[in-house]
């Protein structure tokens, strides 16, 4: 009995210290801003490097890659190319979803928010593993303590700063989906701007006429001013998703990202 009590007491102690650690870690992250690329596409990449590999690289840099595959309503079967959607998100540490046009708005915000939670949970798990060994994770905690940790994760998801770079596949087949995409993005900004934390959005389309990506909207806190630029996006038949994700990666936090990338970065963008 006595021994048990001592043991329990000690465990509790360890747990409390662990929590403090996690909070501190997350607090640091909060200052560092959550970064996401949101890729909206309707098909398979057909040019340049493997998008999954590029997504993995982005994730290494602290940017998670989410992918939404948009289906036309009449399509009954999923086009083959959309398998790639899941693969890119998996290696990009993000969330993916394939939807019909009509459900796009709600999906865009769910995916974004889920990805935020996922990233923050990832940090928690990493921390737990470091303290309690490689087998420990959020799911292994007793329900009550898991509840406490989830509360911290939620608090941070609400208050952290967020940067979302929207990357739109502007190949010919996307043309009639663009009005819906535009609406969904405005809706996304309504959702995210209800948060306590700050947001920044940027929109790029790909491929650009001569470069990998094309700037549609520079970093800005809101997306309500996009109606004028949107109709002009569409291009030919190629879909160089990999190079586009790579170019998008360099658009984040220019101040802090490796300076050596600067030149490359400028040369791979063209203004809309």
């Amino acid at each position: 009995m006595v021994l048990d009590d001592v043991f329990e007491h000690e465990l509790l102690d360890i747990f409390l210290r662990r929590m403090a650690n996690i909070e501190e870690e997350l607090y640091l992250m909060k200052k560092g801003t959550l970064k996401q690329i949101l890729l909206i596409t309707d098909g398979c990449s057909n040019k340049g490097e493997d998008p999954s590999a590029v997504a993995a690289l982005a994730f290494q840099q602290g940017i998670s890659v989410n992918v939404i595959g948009v289906l036309e309503d009449e399509q009954s079967e999923q086009p083959e190319g959309l398998q790639e959607v899941e693969e890119i998100a998996m290696s990009g540490g993000g969330v993916s979803q394939i939807v019909y046009k009509q459900a796009l708005a709600q999906t865009v915000q769910t995916v974004t928010k889920q990805a935020m939670t996922q990233t923050l949970q990832g940090v928690v798990n990493q921390e737990l593993k470091q303290i309690l060994g490689p087998k420990q994770s959020l799911e292994e905690l007793p329900p009550d303590q898991r509840g406490e940790v989830m509360e911290v994760v939620e608090d941070l998801g609400e208050t952290c700063d967020l940067e979302v770079l929207v990357l739109i596949d502007a190949s010919a087949s996307m043309h009639n989906k663009l009005p819906t995409v535009q609406e969904a993005l405005i809706d996304l900004s309504v959702s995210l701007n209800a948060r306590i934390g700050r947001n920044r959005f940027a929109i790029y389309s790909f491929p650009g006429k001569r470069k990998d990506i094309n700037k549609v909207l520079d970093w800005s806190p809101k997306l309500d001013s996009i109606s004028s630029v949107f109709p002009k996006l569409t291009s030919g038949g190629i879909t160089p998703t990999g190079p586009a994700i790579k170019a998008a990666m360099y658009q984040f936090g220019k101040k802090s990202l490796l300076r050596s990338f600067r030149n490359e970065d400028e040369s791979s963008i063209e203004e809309a």
Binding site: A105, E158, V190, N193, A194, R195, I196
Partner: peptide, 20 residues
């Protein structure tokens, strides 16, 4: 805070009649 979960038809943001 921002509404955690909503359904479009019942959501004032969807109707353009307020924030989330």
């Amino acid at each position: 805070r921002s509404i955690k979960e909503y359904t479009e038809f019942y959501d004032r943001g969807y109707w353009g009649m307020g924030s989330r």
